[in-house]
Structure formats: structure tokens, C-alpha cells
Design a protein around this nucleic acid. Sequence first.
DNA 1: GCGCACCCATGACGACTGTCACCGGGCAGT
DNA 2: ACTGCCCGGTGACAGTCGTCATGGGTGCGC
Lengths: 202, 202
Amino acid sequence: MIRLLLADDQALVRGALAALLDLEGDLQVVAEVSRGDEVVSAAVQNAVDVALLDVEMPGADGIVATAALRSARPSCRVLIVTTFGRPGYLRRAMEAGASGFVVKDTPARQLAEAVRRVHAGLRVLDPGLAEESLVSGASPLTARETEVLRAARGGDTVADVAATLHLSEGTVRNHLSAAIGKTGARNRAEAVRLAEDRGWLL
Amino acid sequence: MIRLLLADDQALVRGALAALLDLEGDLQVVAEVSRGDEVVSAAVQNAVDVALLDVEMPGADGIVATAALRSARPSCRVLIVTTFGRPGYLRRAMEAGASGFVVKDTPARQLAEAVRRVHAGLRVLDPGLAEESLVSGASPLTARETEVLRAARGGDTVADVAATLHLSEGTVRNHLSAAIGKTGARNRAEAVRLAEDRGWLL
DNA sequence: GCGCACCCATGACGACTGTCACCGGGCAGT
DNA sequence: ACTGCCCGGTGACAGTCGTCATGGGTGCGC
């Protein structure tokens, strides 16, 4: 009997996935959480074998949760189940110690099999996404550049970003200019979109 | 036996919801589609009683699908099941003839009950969202303004928008300025974000 | 007909943005 | 010690953006 943990901020999806996986005879959902920072304690308390984590969650994202879980309970494997197949997500997830990465587009029948493979110590990767991850590569943005770009998300002006980050306006413009150049965008907004699509803003 | 149709672009969520609903004795999922433009034919062919539709789908969005389905098969009720509780979505969905509106945050147990209520001819509304919908009101944007704002999404420059819409650059700037004023934003990017959050860009 | 709202357009103006050159400081590798 | 990279900052400049006034055209309801 493989003991599972589900982490997803959408209660309906969580419950539905639980129903789907409980149909399998050898799988059993023993814990459900809605926040990333509740993963570790729930996994430890319930002696979880495989954790299915979403990437975008309140509290802590799936990548951080993966790293924390792997160090707190090394016997527990992690399978990322996420909406967005962003190349950067896959890369970071694997670096954090995840054993598999599945997008929510995949057929429902394959999920149970993916769980079993992960539990057996094998890796599960979306082949197309893995290729894309290799092509787009790691993020070329420096720490400050991503931070500024992330702060500029949502349409804040340069003055706002400078205020929230305690920087000079000129510095913010410089970092943004560098980010625009590196992403190949012609705009701040386009740079935000491209960086987000590639999973560089986390 | 209530016959159900599921429409969601994420196969995994679709399959999981099917598993969840099939656990109920009086519910039966008889059709699944991944695109909005496949809803009507699938509903007609399978004599569907209640259709669970996502809002954001390829082909046709859930609102358009709702209207088409209500006119093609009036006996079939529609329950919108969506990720984003955008006020504008709820308003437009109800205007299009939906009987219920549920966000994916709601507990899994309530879904079956919502389906039964919708099938019985009752309305199912998220109370908080309904209030929000009344507060934010209908979209104040004109057709052209929303179109320009939608085209400016993703960070295209004024020249690009003008080219794709066959307009003068000055006109585009005027429409954008009006949209910025009506949304209360201080930016084009912020206007896009606000309008999107309120469900004004469809 | 008349008003009204929307659409398209033009021109002008100030503000913001993107880019570049340049400076100093800190920190890691050779 | 020297080089290279990242960080923070300044100043200047062209380009874009946001706003306003203004005009003409259309379609709608009273």
C-alpha cells in the first residue's frame, strides 16, 4: 500500500485527485494540505511514501516544499503535479530533489502509473517539456534582476518598484534594461511575460 | 440517475472530477470534452442533464458554450466550475443562462450537492463572489476599449496594437487612456491586470 | 431633428521609459 | 594583485506613453 500526500491550493481539485487515486487498489491518500508550508509536518506525521505537490501554492511554493520535504524525510519521493509546464519549474524541481514532473494536461489514467514509478525510484518526466527545458536553459537573470522584474509585475511604475526595494530609480531602470535585453523582449511588460512563461520568476 | 458532462482543458482535472462524481450513486459522467466548441454536440448526443463547464478553454470559452448549449438543449442545466472567481465571469455566466457558479476552492463534498441543486432547477452561487459581482458592477469599457486592452496584453507596443487592429497609433493611445481612466489604473499594464482580475477581458 | 455615445483621427505637450557611458565598491577566482 | 562579475548610483538622451483639446463620422433613442 503506497501512502500518498496531496498538496494543492484548490480544494476541489485536491478532493477529486484523492477520489481518482483511491480507486486504485494499491494507493491510499492519507493526507491533504492546501499550503506549501504544511507539507513537511503532514508528510512526517502520516508516514507518507509519495507526495504530489502543486508548484503554485500559498505559504511556500512546491519547489521549496520539495527541498524541505526531501531533507526532513528522505524516504519520501516527490511528484510535481502542476498546471503550467514552465521549463524553469521542471529544472528547479529536479534540482530540489523531485522524482517526477507531470502537467495537469496528462490523461488521468497515467497518474497512478506515474506515482508507482516514482515510488519505485524511477524518474517521470514529460518528454516534450524536458526538451524545452534543455533548450531554454537556466535563467540568465541575476538575483537582483529577477527581483526587480518580479516587483514590476502587475504594472507598478519605476518609482513604486524603487520605493518597495529601497533603490534609486536609475538603478531600477538599469536592472530592468538588463532584464529586457536578456529575455529578448522589447518591453518591460513583455519581459515580465517571457520570464514568467519560462519559469524564471518562480 | 443524473447524466453529466465535464468540460475542462486539463485532462487530469477532468478525469479526477469524473472519479469524484462517479462515487455518488445518483450521478453519472457520460461525456468529457476538452474544448468549448465540443460541448454542444457532446451534450446532445449523450442526453446530458447537467453540464459542468470551465470558463477558460480553447475553442470557445465557457460563457459562449453556456449560451450555445442553453439554446441547443434547454433542458440541460449548466454549472460553471472555474479556477478564477472573477466577478465579471459570474455576471456573464448568469446572463448566458448558467444555473450555478462554483470556484475550484470549494470543498469537494459540496460539488455533488451543487450538481443536484442545479438539476433540481435551483441556483448555486458563491455568496462572497455574488456580493463582489454587485460591487464591481458590469464592465464600463466600450467594445473597442476592451479589444485594444486585450491586444495590449502580453506587452505589445502601441505600434503593434495599431497594426494588428488596423488603427492609428493615436487612436490606440486614446482608447488605452480611456481604459486606464475607467479602471482606475495608473498604467497600461496595471489596467490590463485590473480588467483581467474583474473578468472584463473575457 | 436633436442630443448622446461611440468610433477614428490629429496634433501637441509633459511625463515616463529604455539605453548608454561612466563611476565606485564588494566579492570570487586565478 | 589582477580580472571579472554583480551591485548601486548618476547623468544624459531619444523614444515611447499618457493626457488633453479638437474635429468629423456613425448609429441610436427621444
